[in-house]
Design a protein around this nucleic acid. Structure first.
Lengths: 151, 151
DNA sequence: ATAAATCCATACTGTTTTACTCGGGATTTG
DNA sequence: CAAATCCCGAGTAAAACAGTATGGATTTAT
């Protein structure tokens, strides 16, 4: 019941772009370094995200990547779907494909997986990159005030 | 974001044992046939379930497998954990192992995966085999009364 | 105009996991 | 004793994973 590194790294990278969201594009090299991901590998992942319209690439020197929409309009669910495919614990409850299992209508185990899928979707589609940035900010402040107390 | 066939088949088999739960053990051959699973492969899965104390094996002719506890006391989450390991979309939010990621405390993407994990756990740990049998029964009756109307 | 920085694209590769298969031994019942 | 069944360990082909490698296209700075 694992995500591959694609979704894992991809979200890290998108979160990085969200944290540094602004007018200027951010070179992938920087993102890869900050997030400790192989640059070449990350290139493949971001290519998928670009084709899906989640980021824009700016070529040439001083180029880089920039979110195609503001962080508040990009949800984790979108990112995961692009990089991992349909969110579904087993194939017969895929969000996209039609179920080819002949007992689909009767199969009770299937309803279990559907419930799992729906609960995952509910979580992923309710968290935006902006939400994550806000949480990060809160965490950071929490850590800093702890520092003040102990210092 | 997929389950392997281990969890998928394993739940099917356990549900089959629950549906036919009684005094007599059920040969794996029957379960495998009913659920369309390779018998040899299922043997490996049920071995794990037996070692985990979820089913009991009865050797010899007229032998088979039987649930170690009544269906109402066996939850889907247990079965999945035995066959798939800790429920966790990424390793750093495993239920068991300690996180070895050095930025664990700070990493915001990690909190996303934690939320996903918790929502999956909540679903899987709230459905018992008895719940599934009850749903199956309801479904069956629904289909039958539909038949009556249309006939 | 050229060099550097960056994105973009395709192909290749070693390792691990998956989903089995195979062969045989141990135990119980009729 | 024979049949049915559980029990156990090894082997294996194919796919997926997690990258590498190589080089071309485009833009900016000097």
């Amino acid at each position: 019941m694992r995500l591959s590194t694609r979704g894992h790294y991809g979200l890290k990278a998108m979160f990085d772009l969200a944290q540094h969201f602004g007018a200027d594009p951010i070179p992938l090299k920087i993102v890869a370094e900050r997030q400790s991901i192989s640059e070449h590998y990350l290139e493949q992942l971001i290519a998928a995200l670009r084709k899906a319209g989640l980021v824009k690439g700016v070529r040439g020197s001083q180029g880089g990547y920039i979110l195609a929409r503001p962080p508040r309009e990009i949800y984790v669910g979108e990112i995961v779907r692009v990089l991992e495919g349909s969110i579904a614990p087993v194939e017969c409850v895929s969000e996209f494909k039609v179920a080819q299992c002949d007992q689909a209508d009767f199969c009770i185990t299937r309803t279990v997986w559907k419930k799992v899928r729906d609960s995952i979707v509910q979580v992923l589609d309710s968290i935006s990159l902006a939400d994550m940035c806000r949480d990060e900010e809160r965490n950071r402040q929490g850590r800093e005030s702890e520092q003040e107390i102990t210092t």
